[in-house]
């Protein structure tokens, strides 16, 4: 389900006290805790199928397993789009992709709530 991307109250209510501590520790480590639109967006996308295209042209399709504040991505049930070109990826079923090497992520149409994104973007722009 696509929720409110930066609604902090709603966001915190789902956390247990120990993960709340971690969440706060997490916020302190960021320059501006309000600005994490895409981190929140991708968290809502967990469980959906995406295609991640890397800067080295490798494209991997898989189920989004998790994402972190750097937009590092973990995929499950992965399949390389151009398998013949990348034989060494044959037996890789799940992987961690460093956020900095991502060029694009192709998103599932049902994972994009356009109105929510517009609101979250405007809020984020004010916070910055």
């Amino acid at each position: 389900m696509v929720g409110s991307y930066i609604n902090t109250h709603k966001f915190l209510s789902g956390f247990s006290s120990s993960s709340l501590y971690l969440f706060i520790a997490h916020l302190l480590s960021l320059n501006n805790p309000v600005l994490q639109l895409f981190f929140s967006y991708f968290k809502d996308l967990v469980g959906k199928e995406v295609t991640v295209e890397l800067k080295n042209d490798l494209a991997i399709r898989g189920i989004l397993h998790s994402v972190d504040q750097y937009l590092n991505i973990k995929l499950e049930h992965t399949r390389v789009v151009d398998q013949d070109k990348y034989p060494h990826m044959l037996s890789v079923r799940n992987c961690f992709i460093r956020g900095s090497v991502v060029r694009y992520v192709q998103l599932p149409p049902d994972g994009v709530d356009v109105d929510l994104l517009h609101d979250a973007t405007r809020r984020e722009a004010r916070g910055g």
């Binding site: 600005l35 639109l37 895409f38 967006y41 356009v114 517009h118 979250a120 973007t121 910055g128």
Partner: peptide, 21 residues
């Protein structure tokens, strides 16, 4: 790397990360 995009802007942040439709 010689790429161009045209699309509808749905979201962006201060890094110019974007979602286009």
């Amino acid at each position: 790397s010689d790429r161009e995009l045209r699309g509808k802007l749905h979201a962006y942040d201060q890094h110019l990360n974007m979602i286009l439709g």
